[in-house]
Structures are given as structure tokens and as C-alpha cells.
């Protein structure tokens, strides 16, 4: 029997994505703690390995060696479904991200829509986690998570739509092909406002500070994951870090020219841009104070949303003017 080439491609992509997600989680935990340390003028993790480089691996092992606990009276099905559900769609998000012309899991002509659709499932997981754990902090965190993710989804979609209007395609590979190698040929030059809106919204979407209200430790203990110990907690964080990588990769594709860069096009440019964006996200977390919840919602509905709509209309208008 001959194994079809497509099946081989899918399996290889799946294994590669699994390895990539795991590696990224370790790398980002290390980066986050190390940056945090240096921003606060302390060395960060330093004991395990040179400059604490093995620390995240040990953290993972430690998490696995902790007992999985469930509070009395919690809804067992929802409680355990939540961390699993937050992890399930994550791998799929990497399927159509073009790291280079060759390094694409599967070229999907609706790639952008696929990513946006499955990224939305994460909210459901957070809601189930907060509701299922029969904990007041959890419940409040879940209510916040839903209203926040729901709100920030819309400017995000509108900012992405501005690019889609301009390029006329939802295929991520074609969007990259529409941009040039030099920074002034990237979409960010034509759509600076869309990029700003997109970047602000992804902070809200991935629950990152200064918009990390669902898990605000100073008000809600730990928000929706208060009751999760061991790997239950670990899965939420793996999913969050993987989602951060996905949204930054999409930003790279849409606005920063994807794998294209000065002198030599290739996956190294893609990784470099993604990691610069991730660095900015972590940097923001340790620089800005957390906003209040009404401020959070009002930033979205009073500023980001009207700006995003105006940007979209402006894009459509200017395209007709210069047509």
C-alpha cells in the first residue's frame, strides 16, 4: 500500500507543531521571568542551569508532580473539560501559519478565518473553568473573561478586515506575497492605525497585562483558574503562551511582511519579528499598571471600535479613490 503524500505532510506538520508549541511554552516562560527580572533590576531565575536556563523545564516537572485537586461541589465534567478544551484548538491554529513558502503546514485559502474562528474557542474554556470550579473568584473571573474577550474580538476583526479589504484574500501566504522585502513595503506603512488597534486588541484577547483582569491576582486571587492545581493550571498557561505566539505570528503575516525581510527572505525573519512582538507584549506587562474594569471596556467600545470602523471605511474609500 502506498501512503499518500498529503497524509505524510499532515502528520509531519502535526508532530512539528506539537514540538514547536512545547518548545515555545518553555522558551516564553523563561523569557517572561528573565525579562521581568531585569526590568525590575534583579537577575530573575539563576539557580538551575547557567543563567537559570533549565528553570522552565524543572517548573514543568514540578507541576506534574503536584496533586490534581478538585474542590467539593464542583461540576466535575465542566471542571476537567475546561483545561482540555483550552488546549484542543491551539495546535490547529498553527496549521496554516506560513513560516516560509516551504514551512507551511497546509495552505488554506480561508486561513485567516480558520485562525480567528478556532481562537474564539478559548473564551468558552475560560467560562467553563470559572463556572465549573464552584468558586466565587472563579465565577467573577469567568464573567470578566467573557465580557472582555467578547469586546476585544470586534476591533480585532475589523483591523484584520482592513488588511483583507486591501489584499482581497484571506490566504495568509498570499497576504505575505503581496508585501515586499523592505520595511517600507510592508502593510504596516499603509495601515499603521490597524496595526495599533490589532496589537491593543490582542492584549485583551490573550488576557495579558495591562488587560489581565480575568486573573487579576490583586483583586480575584487568580480569577478563573483559582481552583486549578498541577497540570490543570499548566494547560491553561501552555494554551495562553501558544495563543500569544499565534496572535503575534498573525500580526507578522498581516502587517510586518511575514517571512520577507531585507537581504535574505526566510523563516528567520518570521521568527525574529514574532519574537520582537512577543518581547513587546512581555515588556508592556511589566511596565503598565493594570486598568480598571470599566476603563477596560470603555477603551474598547469608545475608542478602539469607532477607530477601527473609521479605519475600515477609510481603507475602502481610499481604495476607490486610488483605483
Amino acid at each position: 500500500m502506498k501512503i499518500p503524500i498529503e497524509l505524510i505532510r499532515i502528520v509531519v506538520a502535526l508532530v512539528a507543531v506539537m514540538a514547536w508549541v512545547g518548545l515555545n511554552a518553555l522558551l516564553l516562560v523563561y523569557c517572561e521571568r528573565k525579562y521581568a527580572g531585569h526590568i525590575q533590576r534583579r537577575p530573575g531565575p539563576f539557580e538551575v542551569g547557567p543563567h537559570g536556563i533549565i528553570q522552565p523545564l524543572i517548573d514543568g516537572l514540578k507541576l506534574m508532580a503536584k496533586q490534581l485537586l478538585m474542590p467539593d461541589g464542583a461540576d466535575a465534567i465542566l471542571f476537567w473539560l475546561a483545561p482540555i478544551l483550552s488546549m484542543i484548538p491551539v495546535l490547529l491554529l498553527f496549521l496554516c501559519i506560513p513560516y516560509s513558502p516551504l514551512l507551511t503546514g497546509w495552505e488554506v485559502n480561508l486561513g485567516l478565518l480558520l485562525i480567528l474562528a478556532f481562537a474564539g474557542l478559548n473564551v468558552l474554556a475560560l467560562l467553563l473553568a470559572g463556572w465549573g470550579s464552584n468558586n466565587k473568584w472563579g465565577l467573577l473571573g469567568a464573567a470578566r473573561a467573557v465580557s472582555q474577550s467578547v469586546a476585544y474580538e470586534i476591533p480585532l476583526l475589523l483591523a484584520v478586515l482592513a488588511i483583507a479589504f486591501q489584499t482581497g484574500t484571506l490566504n495568509l501566504t498570499e497576504i505575505v506575497n503581496g508585501q515586499g522585502s523592505w520595511p517600507w513595503q510592508w502593510n504596516i506603512i499603509v495601515q499603521p492605525l490597524a496595526f495599533l488597534i490589532y496589537f491593543t486588541s490582542i492584549l485583551g484577547e490573550t488576557n495579558r497585562a495591562p488587560f489581565d483582569l480575568p486573573e487579576a491576582e490583586s483583586e480575584l486571587t487568580a480569577g478563573f483558574h483559582t481552583e486549578y492545581s498541577s497540570m490543570g493550571f499548566g494547560l491553561f498557561f501552555m494554551a495562553e503562551y501558544a495563543n500569544m505566539v499565534v496572535v503575534c505570528s498573525v500580526a507578522t503575516v498581516l502587517f510586518l511582511g511575514g517571512w520577507k525581510g531585507p537581504f535574505f527572505d526566510g523563516w528567520w525573519w518570521f521568527l525574529a519579528k514574532t519574537y520582537v512582538l512577543l518581547f513587546v507584549m512581555i515588556w508592556l506587562r511589566w511596565t503598565y499598571p493594570r486598568v480598571r474594569f470599566d476603563q477596560l471596556l470603555n477603551i474598547n467600545w469608545k475608542w478602539l471600535l469607532p477607530l477601527a470602523v473609521a479605519n475600515l471605511l477609510g481603507t475602502a474609500f481610499l481604495m476607490k479613490v486610488f483605483a
Binding site: 483550552s86 484542543i88 490547529l92 497540570m231
Partner: peptide
């Protein structure tokens, strides 16, 4: 999606 399920259930 199945891979994601595996990725979640394995560590648990």
C-alpha cells in the same frame, strides 16, 4: 484537533 486532545490529556 485530536493531536490537541492528546497534547492536553497526556500531561494530565
Amino acid at each position: 484537533l485530536l493531536g490537541g486532545l492528546l497534547f492536553a490529556v497526556g500531561p494530565l
